[in-house]
Structures are given as structure tokens and as C-alpha cells.
Computed example of a mutant assay.
Amino acid sequence: MKYQPPYTINAKILNLVAQISETIGQLTVLSQIQESLRLRRVNRIRTIQGSLAIEGNTLSEAQITAILDGKQVIAPPKEIQEVRNAIKAYEAFQQWQPASEQDLLQAHQILMAGLIDEIGRYRRGGVGVMSGNEVIHMAPPAGQVPRLMDDLLQWLAQSKEHPLIQSSIFHYEFEFIHPFADGNGRMGRLWQTLILSRWNPIFANIPVESLIYQHQQAYYAALQASTDQTDIAPFIEFMLQMIFDAIRTSGTLIVDSVQASDHADVQVTVQASDQVKRLIGLMQQQEYSLTELMQLMGLVHRPTFQKNYLNPALDAGLIERTQPDKPKSPQQRYRLKPSNK
């Protein structure tokens, strides 16, 4: 193997790989139920919404659902085109091979059709990654891109690393090279999902992109930290944590749907307490509004925060409402129960 990405495998990475492998096994036994309950469609919509939102697309899950159903949506034409392209790409991606350059270029052609001129081919000019008015990463010169991508795809084809680690390394290296004129972020996330789905098909329906969107600043910080350290470990750790959280969220959705559909005979245990522990660990002996709790966690998506953090903590009796008789009151606040701090 002539190219070896710079990375180290630490104890945290190995622990996350083990946790993900165990939890994904629990979800796999529910894959047939998931199919029958149409959760694949729901998660696909969340995947598309999350990945495009990172790039500035403002369409909601409801609007994406409408586009998927062929209904008219009033929104900027560019954003509608982005959604239509993403729908086509995620519908087609199971036929692609992760280490195939031809498939990679075809995916870019589908994902960016009608959005830029240079579709389905590597960029011909320089490109940098901006943060506000500051260039935080200048990608390698365009003339080096074909060689760098060939090295990366060959590494992917020959690597013996666990697919969870392998896919995260590819994702980082792809973003570092920035091989296309535009669409590199959504392509990198799409290709990591493709690599993971080759390990376990259930990953095609787990919306990791949605969680990345909720932790967007941390996503870019992990990319930058890996570049600064010349070690991909920070990005691997971040991605594995996002994958783990996404799996547990999907597990909760499956179990809820199973129970709602009178499949009570199916018994599944999905570890979901770590998110609650993170919330409890950050709270002090004071009262918080819903917005303040979300800021405390660094989250921006209210429905996900309520479902994965707030409601489980309330149900477990770890926190309480200041106005329990008026759960939807605008003045509602939340606090730790006395015995929890």
C-alpha cells in the first residue's frame, strides 16, 4: 500500500467501536420491523435534511417530504434542486462501490446536477475552506487531486481497519483534498454512509448527518484539530460519537414504533442513558429555560433535544418542571431534583 493516512487508534476510539458494534447488533434484529414501519423513509428524509442544512439549505423535513412525494414547494429553486439531487443520490448509492473512482464521479454528477458547471469531474482550480472571512484550510493544488484521490481510493480498497474507523478516515482525507469545485461536504458524508452500509446495510437508514448538523461547530472543529495535529484521531473520535448517538436515537424510534404498532412481543434493550447523563452532568443547582438547556448542551434542534435528552430525563425523575401542572407554559423552567446533584 503506497499511501498511509496519518492516524493513531486510541482507547476512546476502540471503546466507541466496541459500543457501536454491540448496539448495531441490537438494531439489526429489528431491520425487518423497521422496513414494515416505514422508518427507512423517515430516516432518509432526516439524512438529506441534515446533510444539506450543513451547507446552508433551509428546507425543513416537511418540505423535503413534500418534494419526495412530488408536491409543489415554495422555496428557492436552488434549494429545491439540492433536495431533488440528494434524493436521487441516496436512492442510487447502494449500487456504488466505495473504492471506485467512476462511481464517486457519478455520485458527484447526480448530487450537484444543475448547481455547478463542473459536475462529475475533479476541480481545475484552487479552493479553500472559509470560516467567515478567514481561510482556515487551503486544499492541495488542482494538479495533485487525481493522484491524491487515486492514493486514497487505493488505500480504501486495501485497508484492513474496522469500517467504522476506515470510513471516518476516508471522510477526513476526502475533505482535506477537497477534490471537487463544490459539494465536497455532502459528498464526504454520503461516501462515509456508503462505506458503513457495506459493513452493515442498516447504516443506509441511520441519519448520522442529522446529528452532525446539530453539532456543526464541533464537526468543523474536529476537522481542524486533525489538520493541526497531523493526526486524524480527533475527527475519528467525533464521527464515532455521532454514529453512536445516531444509532441509539434510531433504536429509540424503532422501539417506540414497535410499541405503537402492537409489536409488544419484541423485546429490545437499547442503551440511551449517556445523553441524559451528559445533560445531568452539566446542570447546576439553578433553574433553566428550554433554550438555556439547549445552549448548555450546544444543541440547536429542539425536537431532537426534547426527545433524546429532556423527556427521558423527566421520565426518569432526574429533573423536574417548575410548573408541572402547565407543561407547555411559556414560563416553564427545569431544574435538577434535589437528590441528583
Rank of each mutant, 00 (worst) to 15 (best):
Q284I: 04
F93L: 05
I110D: 00
P201W: 06
S257Y: 11
T249E: 12
T58K: 09
L52T: 09
M1Y: 03
V17I: 10
E287F: 11
E173T: 07
S60C: 12
L190G: 02
F180A: 07
G114E: 08
S31E: 15
D325N: 12
I67N: 02
Q49F: 03
F238G: 09
I165A: 03
R278M: 07
E61V: 09
P5Y: 01
F244V: 01
S51E: 13
E55L: 06
E173H: 09
I119E: 01
Q214F: 07
L16C: 13
Q216P: 02
L30R: 05
S329L: 04
R198G: 03
D103Q: 00
Q216W: 03
I177R: 04
E91S: 05
I206Q: 06
V268D: 10
F180I: 01
G120K: 00
E35W: 13
A221V: 01
Q154G: 06
Y7G: 08
G70A: 14
I232C: 07
L104S: 00
Q332G: 11
V145L: 14
I195V: 09
K78F: 03
E55N: 08
W96F: 14
K160P: 02
A62T: 11
S329N: 15
S197L: 03
N308S: 15
T252N: 15
Q331E: 08
E22A: 13
H137A: 09
L68M: 13
